[in-house]
Amino acid sequence: NKIDSQIKEFEEKTKEDRKVIVLAELTEQATNYGLEVSEIELKSSWLNSSNFTAKNKLTKKIEKEILAECIEIKQRKDTREQNKKLVESYAKANKLEPHSWVMLIDEGLTAANIFPKIDAAAKEVLEQEQRELEKAEAEIKQALPNKTAVEVHKELHAEESEDEPTYSFTLNITGTAKQISIIKKTIEDLGVKYQVEMDE
């Protein structure tokens, strides 16, 4: 029992020593790739005795595994950051607040997944704005009486017309009966006095 206990203590100490060696390798590689050690998961298999030399150093195989793990994490991180920038730019281009869309990247979505969602949201916003504009125009039309351009002109210049001097001139008009009828009505609507002299 005493021997068994001593063997277990030795194995635990050896395992802790191996863990320190692996962490040192992880720290070095993480620094090389601009990563935090906490971003790299320490695999329990890396602590196996078969991954250490007789001098208690990491084998080349495990060094390569740790290196590959760091490269993969770095690539995933870079891709995520690139996706965030793309989504932020795309959201801003569609006049949407980008923060909530960028957060979707951290939930596992890619820019390609998010772009169609942004398109749909932008379309909905545009349609909503169009509906609000049409509603506002309808309310304005309902509030204001329907007036012709001539009536508006008469109202705007009613006071001015009373004080302004009047002029007379002869105007010879040639046109169809319909055209002359429209001109006649417009002149009457404006309150202009006129005299008709028909050619024989």
Rank of each mutant, 00 (worst) to 15 (best):
N1C: 09
I3E: 15
D4T: 04
E11I: 06
K13E: 14
K13A: 13
K13L: 13
T14K: 15
E16V: 03
D17C: 11
D17G: 11
V20P: 11
V22F: 02
L23N: 12
A24V: 03
A24W: 10
L26P: 00
Q29N: 12
T31E: 15
T31Q: 15
Y33N: 12
S38E: 13
S38A: 11
E39Y: 06
L42A: 06
S44I: 05
S44A: 10
S45C: 09
W46G: 00
S50C: 06
T53E: 08
N56D: 14
L58W: 00
K60T: 03
K61G: 09
I62K: 03
E63S: 08
E63R: 10
I66K: 00
L67C: 08
E72N: 12
I73S: 03
D78Q: 11
V87M: 02
K92A: 02
E97I: 04
P98K: 01
P98E: 01
M103R: 12
L104V: 00
L104A: 01
E107L: 06
A111G: 01
F115S: 01
P116M: 00
A121W: 01
A121K: 05
E124G: 02
E124M: 06
E127Q: 14
E127V: 02
Q128M: 09
Q130P: 03
K135S: 13
A143W: 06
L144E: 09
N146I: 07
A149H: 10
A149T: 04
L156W: 08
A158I: 04
A158F: 12
E160K: 12
E160M: 13
E160Y: 14
D163L: 08
D163W: 07
T166C: 12
S168V: 09
F169P: 06
L171R: 08
K178S: 13
I180V: 13
S181Q: 13
S181W: 12
S181C: 08
I183L: 15
K184D: 14
K185Q: 13
T186L: 15
E188M: 09
Y194M: 08
E197V: 06
